[in-house]
Structure formats: C-alpha cells, structure tokens
Amino acid sequence: MAARLTAQDITLGYGERVVSEHVNLDVPDGAFTAIVGANACGKSTLLRSFVRLLRPSAGTVGFDGRDVNGYRPKAIARQIGFLPQGLVAPENIVVRRLVARGRYPHQSMLSTWSAENERAVQEAMAAAGVAELAERSVEELSGGQRQRVWVAMVLAQETPYLLLDEPTTFLDITHQYQLLKLFARLRDEGRTIIAVLHDINQACRFADHVVAMKAGRVVAEGAPADIVDAELIEEVFDLPCVVVPDPVTGTPMVVPTA
C-alpha cells in the first residue's frame, strides 16, 4: 500500500549537531504507529520534521508525493495535526474557546465562525470527554483534564493525520489508558495516528505498527508481535528482559530481568 506521509532519506539536526541521518519511513495509512526508543534517540525530532517544525538538512518529508514544506501553511494544516508537549494555554481562556482554536486552518480572515465550526468543536469535545467542561477556564482544570482539552483542540482541526509527541506523559495510568483508547478509536474511524510513546508495553498493546529507534536510526519496524522480542529491547533500550504475552491482549509484554 502506498503511504501518503513519507520520510525519504532525511537528515535532521539542530545547527551543527546532527541527530538523525538517512532516515526512511513510510507511515502506514489508517494505522496507529508508535515510535519508541530511549531518551534522546531522535524520535521527537523525527516527529517534528513531519509537521514542519524542523526542516531536514537533506532529503524530503513528503505528503501525497509533495514536500510538506511546499504546501500553503493552512492547506497542510488541514491534513496533518500535531499535539506537542508542554503546552501553556493563553490566560483566562475557556475550554470551548481553546478547542475552537483548532479550527484555525479551516477559517478565512472574513469568516471566523460557522455552523460547521460549531459542530466540529462540539464533536471534538465529546470525543475527548471534555464536553461538560466547555465553559470552564482551562487554568482551573486538573492536569489530566487539561491534556484532554488539548487533544480536543487537535481533534477539532479534523485532520486525517494526527501526530502526538508523548501524549500520555504526566498522566496517571487511568488517564493514559483512556487517552490511548481514544486514539485507537480514532484509528478505527479512519484516521492515521503517529505517536511517540515512552511505554513499550502500551505501544505493543495499542499500536498496529511499531517503529523502534536508536541513536537517530530506525532499527526495526513492523507489527508489535513480529518485531518486539528480548533481543530488540536489549538493543534499543539496553535493558535485559524477557518478553511474554500480555495476559489480557496477548501482545508482547516486556518484563525486565535486572
């Protein structure tokens, strides 16, 4: 199957420091892809290149055969949405208004509001489970609620591609699973999800496709059951372990031995 979003032989870095060289990746359409790897292995950097936050110094990130940097900003923002880490909401903003900011690429200068926008915002808030918080100020929400509000904001962007940089960090385990289930449901509805995840067991449980990275290179990619074994985890995370079937889902589960 032809992938719409691809990295073709890209080199990524910040200034003089090269993080990744000659990376190739075809993002499977309509699937949940998890990018995993140790800290500072270049997984967030790779994700940022997909959403034009980092321009490759060589190679191309392509969408539908065209360089993502060659699109008009709003046109590509209607295709690919991104949830970064460490977001700070504008002061004094209520949930509904923040979620509505996700509609930006669908609005023109002279028409900032429409029934279509209203519907998209309502649906996004319902999907992320924040509809009952609509009129609350974002500042007074808990960390878990706030993260779901940000998710609702990117959902309101209604992009077929949704990229997430460690979306579950700083959430308790219940909220982590709620969020991952939401992404799986969005995948079932036809969206393509690409998430950087820290927890390899969660990645195996929810993702269709796992991309394992080490020192800026993609060392393995494929269905979790096909690629995740003790040897790979030892190589990627430098952690001696055994891999057993998850007692609930049967997906690979990493249990450290040391």
Binding site: A75, F82, L87, G102, Y104
Partner: peptide
C-alpha cells in the same frame, strides 16, 4: 505557542 501556531497553519 510557536509549535501549535506552525502546525495549525
């Protein structure tokens, strides 16, 4: 913020 500004167009 810069990141969301860029990725929302």
């Amino acid at each position: 913020g810069d990141e969301l500004a860029v990725t929302s167009g």
